[in-house]
Design a protein around this nucleic acid. Structure first.
Lengths: 87, 87
DNA sequence: ACAATATATTGTAAATATACAACAAAAAAT
DNA sequence: ATTTTTTGTTGTATATTTACAATATATTGT
């Protein structure tokens, strides 16, 4: 199966928590370069690694990873605000 | 990274939809033996494959795959019924 | 009972993910 | 300004996932 390219928000989420790749890598138990590869979306994580990342950020996998390009979080927020406002 | 064993409900969900491994395999674009391996939990899917399965069943990844052994669906239902009843 | 379909199992080859090392470049801290 | 930390990049090795083939067993349909 040719794997589709997946998108993720690891870099942004990591920045928001103010930790380095090295620190994140240690927590989720991979090499720090592996975090780099993931953030640059050069390859996809295994499902197990996705679960570990999801556990660390305490967010569902679907909020971190996506099959479609991810909008900046700030845009998501604006859209949600509009949606609430418009009813 | 030594991958943890992951658990899944593919076999049950597939039975509920009454499709064969071969049919599911064609839909998600893998070899039918690969579905066998996944159902027997002999190895974990890639994140991309997990997404495809999640898309087919229209269920979040977390409901299909888990890092901890999965209870039968019927038990989950009973627990939820109790939880609702007890408030 | 027989045929057709579905599943299990094993083995080999391929593709992809991960580890690890080394070095360069950029950013942050002092 | 210079040291330290972080990030990017490249290359090689190992582990894991997936494909594919072949065969055996089980299940279902007729």
């Amino acid at each position: 199966m040719k794997s589709r390219k997946l998108y993720n928000r690891i870099a942004v989420l990591r920045k928001e928590r103010n930790i380095s790749r090295k620190e994140l890598a240690e927590i989720i138990g991979v090499n720090f370069q592996t975090v780099g590869y993931l953030e640059r979306e050069e390859y996809n994580p295994s499902l197990d690694l996705a679960f570990k990342i999801s556990e660390y950020f305490e967010l569902p996998i679907e909020l971190i990873f996506s099959t479609k390009p991810l909008k900046p979080l700030i845009e998501e927020i604006i859209e949600l605000k509009n949606k609430i406002g418009e009813q």
